[in-house]
Structures are given as C-alpha cells and as structure tokens.
Design a binder for these strands. Structure first.
Lengths: 224, 224
DNA sequence: CGGTGGTAACTTACCGCAGAGTCATATTGT
DNA sequence: ACAATATGACTCTGCGGTAAGTTACCACCG
C-alpha cells in the first residue's frame, strides 16, 4: 500500500543512501574479495596493505569485509586457505607422477607456470615477511602451509641428491630453499615479460637446464 | 656561577629532564642509527617498522632521527647508501678478478658470505617489497642501485652462456634473474641457520655446485 | 495476484589508537 | 656564551575495527 512507496527513506536524514543488497550471494562476494585481496597482499605485502584499499578495489565497503572475515588477519587466512588449495593440490599430483630427478623438476616448473598464469602473486603470499610473526594466531597456520610445500620439494630434492650420493640433511635443506627460490624467480621474470606463454617458459627452462646442468632431457618433456 | 645552579630547571614544569648532549658527535650517531635501522628494515620490512622502534633500539629519541635524516624515507635512503657502498664495491672487485664462469660465480658467493657475516639483512634492503613504489622519491634511487647489481650479474652470466654457445638475450636475462635469486635464497637460508660461518657456507656451495652441475671446481676454491 | 514480515546483503559515519612528523625547550662540551 | 646535541610532549593523519541504519530479496499468507 502507501507504505511501500511511503517508505521513501532515501531522503530521511543523512542515512546510508547506497545501502541495500545488490543480489550477490555471500559465497560469491567472499570469493571475489579474496581474489582481490590475494593480489594486493601478494604484491604489496600484508603490512603495507590497508583493508580500505582492498574494499575500494573490490568495489564494496570496508565493513562488508569485516562482516565476512572478522579481521584483516581473517581475510589473510582466507587468502592462504584458497591459495594452498590451488597450489598444493597441483604439486601433490605432480609428485605422485612417475617423473624423477630433473624431469620431475621440470614437470613441477611446467605445472607451476600453467597454474600461476595470470596470478603469479599467489605464490608470494606464503613468503611475505610482513605477516605479523606473533607466536600466536596466523603464524602457526602459515607454517603449516609452507611446511606442506617444503616437505614436497624437499622430498624431490632429497631424492635427486640421494641418487647423486649426498644425504647431508642441511645440504638438502639449503638446496630445497634454492630450488623453491628458482621457481619463484622464474615466475617473477615471467611477470616482467608478459608475452611469454607457459609453453615458451617451459621451453626456455629446458634450454637453461641443458646449458647450466649439462643435462640431456628426454624428448617429449617440452610442452607440445 | 649562581646562574648555572639557579637555572635548576629540572623541576620547572615538566621539562625535558634527559636532554643535553652526551658527547657523541653527529657522524658517529648517524652511523649507529643507520646500523640499527638497517637491521630492523631488513628483517621486518620497511612498512612494518616504526621510527619509534628504531629510536628505542638505538637508545635515543625519535626527534633525533628526524633531526638527522629528515624523514623515515630519508633514513632508509641513508641505509641504502651505506649498503650499496658495502656490497657493490666488493662485487666489482670480484668482477675485475680473473675468475670466469662457475668459478666467478663461486667467488661472488664466497665474497657475499664473508661480507654479510653478522649482518645478512643488508641484502634484503634492496628487495623489500614494502618500500613505497611511488614513481617519485625513493623508487628511482633504489632502481639505480639494483641495476648496478644486475648489470654486474648479467655480465657474468652472459659470459658463461657465451662460452656454452647460447647468446639469446632473453635467456641471459632469465638466467640472471635466477642466479640473483639463488644468491638471495642462500643468504636467507643462512639467516635461518645462524651457526653457519662464511667458510661453511662456501664449502656447502661447492658441494652443491658439484652435485647439481656435475662441475669440477678447481682446488683452492674452498675457503680453508 | 498484492501485501507483509523476516533476513541477508550492504552502507555511512564514527571511535580509538598507533605511528609519522614537529616544536619548544633543556643540557653540556668547548 | 654559544652551538651542537638531545628530548618530552604535542599534532595530525590513516587505519583497524564497530554501531546502527538502509535496501532488496523471498517465502508465505490472504
């Protein structure tokens, strides 16, 4: 009745004129926010990023983020959760494959390139030095995640080193760190050369492996 | 004279009771502050660090920092300046040496380890993602510094690749990025294992080089 | 089909606090 | 006495976080 029309609140006082649902269900909105946040956290770092900035880029308001994620840390937690789902699954699939040694390394790189195409910053989340290292809260969770990576990488590296006759655990640890950093730097380099495709990156890696390691990779290793 | 005593201001209102020179000349104080700041910036990141925190750790007060460096960015600038002096000089010295290829790589690493002993965070300053990337101000200066590194590294990498028969400039560029990242990751790993010495780090690198590259390093390369 | 409440989706406006940067002032070596 | 060295106490901006209100969708009733 009149009420419907009468409810013309827009003018009432200085109320929230742009309020009201836009018909986006919570799950969709959450995913959208997490996507934006992951990019910003991953490129600028957690400490240097403000929640307001994320809200603005996502085209929504700050309180909505707090409604859904509780806190800035909660938002980061959600980003990490999504990222680990994306990455670890793929890496574990590769690890379960039958490739070993250098070929396994190359396959991992190849998978990484395909996976991180257009969203390389996901990787950076796990190595953000600005995440508060307070012994409680997010630090433990983060360690859990990175350990999942590291264990996988360390398994591969350790395997290769065993074949070569070195089993020093500290050497394995150091070489694993180097290997993960190599993958990281290649993704970063790719970011600076956007015209490269996952396939061309893989081909480049094959060339560089052959050059640096003097290795002969089996045919068919290069993506189509 | 009476005046000196009469001026007993300590009680006057709530004056600065701890003020007054402590006999430390400006240059010394500046160096001391820069040293502390470099450590904190390098480990926590620029954005996550507060000037007050630095002042407290240095045992002086915040205004003194602003007196000497003008701003937080100015302090960072001073840190970068000192760091580039320390690092670039050493790298250029190595580059001028007669080592080539893998041996030059190893000598660079060795020099880095010796140089960064007890202050590994210096290196991190140049790759801190939380430094404001505003096109003006510090970003340009930082780029200048990192370019100085990169040029040197690219020269070494390009030389090695030429010997191996690959002159693709993009391959050189990518491999240079990888190489610098390798050095970075080794320093980072060292940060997490503080009991390692420069010599033990170098020895480890020799082992890993031999293992991964199948290379035979000349004797005398290992630091005693 | 029209109305009508309940609730999920959104917002504006604000609070409190931490941190960058400043001012006026105090102390001491020379 | 004076310049250099130093600081307590302040302002102001920006950000994490919150309160309270607004709007749209939807299931249900008549």
């Amino acid at each position: 009745m009149a009420r419907t029309t009468t409810r013309r609140s827009p003018s009432a006082g200085s109320g929230r004129r742009n309020a009201g649902t836009k018909g986006v269900p919570r799950a969709d909105r959450e995913e959208q926010i997490v996507e934006v946040a992951t990019e910003v956290f991953g490129t600028q770092g957690f400490a240097a990023t403000s929640v307001g900035d994320i809200a603005e880029r996502a085209g929504i308001s700050k309180p909505l983020i707090y409604n859904y994620f509780g806190s800035k840390e909660g938002l980061l937690r959600a980003c990490l959760h999504r990222a680990i789902e994306i990455l670890a699954g793929e890496f574990e699939r590769i690890a379960r494959g039958d490739a070993v040694g250098l070929e396994r390394a190359l396959r991992t790189l190849e998978g990484t390139f395909v996976l991180l195409e257009r969203q390389p910053w996901i990787w950076r989340l796990f190595f953000d030095p600005t995440i508060p290292r307070g012994e409680q809260g997010i630090a433990a969770e983060l360690a859990l995640y990175t350990d999942r990576f590291t264990a996988l990488a360390e398994e591969g590296v350790g395997e290769m080193m065993r074949l070569a006759g070195n089993e020093d655990p500290r050497d394995v640890s150091a070489l694993t760190a180097v290997w993960m950093s190599v993958a990281d730097s290649l993704v970063t380099w790719w970011l600076d050369h956007p015209d490269e495709t996952p396939a061309s990156m893989t081909a480049r890696c094959v060339r560089l492996f052959q050059l640096v390691l003097g290795a002969t990779l089996p045919p068919g290793t290069t993506a189509d």
